[in-house]
Each structure stands twice: as C-alpha cells, then as structure tokens.
C-alpha cells in the first residue's frame, strides 16, 4: 500500500470543500438555535436545481437558480420550525424526504444529457470560497452586530427577546444564509461531476453536521473537522483495492473509513460542551 501525497492533498481539498460549505451553512442555522438535520436535503435540492437550470440558462444562471432554491427550501424550514413550531428534527426529516422524492421525479422531466461541455463555472472559485467562508464567518460572528445577535438568539431566545432582539427575524436572516451556502455546496457537486444522480449528496449533509458538532459549533474548528473527513475519504479512495499486511481487504471496508472517523471523532473528542443553549428552543 502506497499513498501518493500530491494526489492525497488534491483529493482532500476537493472532498472537504462541499463539506466545509455545508458545515458553515449548518453553523448559521444551529448557532441561531435552529437544529438543522436538513442540510442533506437542502444540498440535494440545490444540486438538482443547479443541474436543471444550467441546461437552460447556462452556468451562472444555474447557480443563481440553485441559490434561490436553496434559500426557499431553507425558509420553508424556518417557517415550519419557527412559525408552525414543528419539531425541528421531524421537519428536517420531512425536508430531506421531500428533497429525495422531488429531485428523483424532476430528473425524469429533463432532456437526456442536459449539461453540454463548457457550461460550468471554474471549480477553483468554489474551493476558494469553501476555505475562505469559515474565516469570514468567524470574524463576522465576533465583530458585528449581526454575529452577536445570532449568538445571543442561539444561546437563549427568551433572554434575547428581553433585550429587544427578535429571534424570529434573526433566524430568518440566518436561514437565508444557510440556503445560500447549501446552494453553493450543491452547485459544487454538480459542477464537479457535470451530472446529477439520485442521492448524489451521499450523506455529506450529515457529515457536515457532524463536523460542525466536532468543531464545537465554531466556524474554523468546523472547517478543520471537514478537512479531517475529506482526508479520510481521500485515503480511502487511494487504498481501495490494495492489500493490507498480505490480506485482501474488501473495498467496502475502506469505504467505511470516513464514516468510522466521524463516529470515533464524535464519540471521543467532543470534549467541552459547547452546544448552543437555545438549540431547538422557539
């Protein structure tokens, strides 16, 4: 078994970028107090929207549509959890299921081989964004009025109300940003593969959420966690089909690696409780 370090580094970047975007999307939502297991569904819907719209509107139009769909889907989450006060886990699951069904159905309506060559944006744009956004978010959270209010609402919505901060409107804005970032994450997946396949997010939304938790609901540590998961995936791709100490390891075992890392990391290294106090509270 031999690892190619250059290839490993490149794969780590490409594999962690969508996770990083989704993790920061989760940060906006959860730090404002809205539990978000719907990152997966939001990414998937946005990916489909990007793919479908690119067919007709070109690359830029495709991404704009993906962002709009991401925002609308995210605001549906806001409406169900904040206005209708549906349990955030249940409504999140519902959104994920709707995403699977709707994209599956929508795909049937598209012409065959929709994206022609040259109709995508450069991938580097996404990668730069994915690694810059967490730092921008760190600064924004600490140094701006919006960031302070986001943290206040996520820590204790009732006490935030007492100082005249309205949790409803703070969360509305936060979920718009979540929609934009999941829109970007979904567009990245389509831009990379130039295709849309059913369930193509493959659990990335959940891994991003795990990274957010592992990072203690802080942007930059969450980024580092996504890089860890991206690295584990990259290792897994290279090791697939190789032998370990003379034994032939089935490829399925290697595929487990990133998920195993997620599990061990969550179980073992979460350490200090940093869960936002207002998570799930309306």
């Amino acid at each position: 078994m031999a690892l190619d370090p250059v290839q490993l580094a490149i794969s780590t970047v490409t594999l962690s970028a969508p996770l990083a975007l989704a993790a920061i999307a989760g940060y906006m939502s959860e730090r404002s107090g809205v539990i978000n297991i719907a990152l997966e569904g939001k990414m998937l819907t946005a990916a489909f929207a990007c793919f479908a719209a690119s067919t007709y509107l070109g690359a830029v139009g495709g991404i704009l549509v993906a962002l709009v769909v991401g925002i609308l889907f995210s605001l549906l989450h806001w409406y169900s959890t904040q206005k209708l006060k549906i349990d955030p886990i249940i409504s999140g699951m519902a959104l994920n299921l709707i995403a699977v069904g709707a994209t599956n159905f929508g795909k049937e309506l598209l012409p065959p081989d929709p994206i022609a060559d040259g109709k995508t944006l450069p991938l580097q744009l996404f990668y730069v964004l994915a690694f810059a956004v967490p730092f921008a978010m760190m600064v924004w959270s600490a140094k701006t009025r919006g960031g302070l209010r986001l943290r206040a609402v996520g820590s204790d919505p009732d006490k935030a109300r007492l100082v005249g901060v309205n949790p409803l409107s703070v969360r509305f804005s936060a979920l718009i940003v979540t929609g934009v970032l999941t829109g970007l994450a979904g567009s990245l997946l389509v831009t990379e593969t130039r295709n849309f396949t059913d369930g193509m997010t493959a659990g990335r939304g959940y891994i991003a959420l795990a990274a957010l938790i592992l990072g203690g609901w802080r942007p930059v540590p969450a980024l580092l966690a996504t890089i860890l998961f991206g690295f584990a995936s990259a290792v897994q791709i290279q090791l697939k089909g190789t032998e370990l100490a003379g034994a032939n390891i089935p490829s399925g075992v290697w595929s487990m690696l990133p998920y195993l890392v997620t599990l061990i990391a969550l179980a073992g290294f979460v350490g200090k409780q940093r869960t936002p106090g207002g998570l799930g509270k309306v």
């Binding site: 140094k143 701006t144 009025r145 302070l148 209010r149 206040a152 935030a160 100082v163």
Partner: peptide, 12 residues
C-alpha cells in the same frame, strides 16, 4: 451591548 450595539460593525 447586545440589542443596543450602536453600529453594524462592533466597536468593542
């Protein structure tokens, strides 16, 4: 300061 921060960018 929360709720009465004064400016969009905080002057800590």
């Amino acid at each position: 300061i929360v709720g009465s921060e004064g400016s969009g960018v905080l002057n800590l």
